[in-house]
Design a protein around this nucleic acid. Sequence first.
DNA 1: ATAGACTCTGACACTTGTGTAAGGGTCAAG
DNA 2: CTTGACCCTTACACAAGTGTCAGAGTCTAT
Lengths: 118, 118
Amino acid sequence: MKIGELSHRTGVSVRMLRYYEAEGLLKPARRESGYRDYGSEDERVVGAIRMLNTSGLKLDFIRRFLSCLRSEGPILHPCPDLLAAMEQEMQALDDQIKRYRKSRTLLGSYYSEMRDHS
Amino acid sequence: MKIGELSHRTGVSVRMLRYYEAEGLLKPARRESGYRDYGSEDERVVGAIRMLNTSGLKLDFIRRFLSCLRSEGPILHPCPDLLAAMEQEMQALDDQIKRYRKSRTLLGSYYSEMRDHS
DNA sequence: ATAGACTCTGACACTTGTGTAAGGGTCAAG
DNA sequence: CTTGACCCTTACACAAGTGTCAGAGTCTAT
C-alpha cells in the first residue's frame, strides 16, 4: 500500500512515516516510480512504534528490537547489552508510571479543592 | 538560601532553577548583590514542579495554579477555564498512564521472550 | 587582601519529534 | 491528454527542556 493509505489507517502523518524510515524503523519497498510500498504488517508495526514512543521510549531504542515488533516467531540476537538496556527501560517505565500516578493524584486534589471553593 | 543550596537540596540544576524563574514559576527575593534568595518553602514547590513536569505537564500549565503548590490554605481564582483545563489534563494523564502500562507489558513480554531464548 | 568557590546575565547549541513549504514527478479518471 | 490527487526529496522552523561557556561581580576563609 502507498504511504497515504498507511497514514490514513494508522493515524500517523505521512511526515512521520517517512521519518520512521529515515530513522531505520520501516523499510518499505519501492516501486519503479520511487513510491513507497508498505506491507500490511507495517500497520501493526507502526501501531507498536507509536505506543512505545508515546510512552517515552526513544526511536533509537525501539529500533533495537524491531524484529520483535515484526515477527511472531523467530527471535533475534538476544545480546546481553540489549537485555540490560531493556531492564533499565522497564525500570524507567515503572518509575515514570509512579510519577504519573502521583501527579494525577495531586492534580485531582487541586481540582477538588478548587471546585469545592467555587 | 542561595541558588546553589537549593539546587543541592532538590537535585535540580542551577540552570533549571533560573529557568523556572524566567518562566514565572519561582520568584526568589534578591540580595543587594543581586544574588537570588530562596525561601525554605521553595524546596517543596520545586519538588512539586518537578513531579508535575516530568509527568508531562508543561511549565506553562503548572504556572497557572502555582498558589496551589505554594499554600496549604487559601485558594485562588478558581475560574471555569482553569477547571476545564485541569479536567482535560487529568484525562490526558489517565490516557498516558494507560499507554505506559501497555508499553510496559509489551516490553516485558519482549524481554521474557528474548531471555528465554538465550 | 587574595584565592577559590559561588553567583550573575546573556547567548548559543542540541535533542527529538513534528509541521510546512517549495519544486517537481506519478497516477488514474474523465 | 489533461486535471486533480497523491507522492518524492530537501530544507527550514519550532517547541520545551537542558547543557555549557564567557565575562564579570561577590563572598568567605585564610
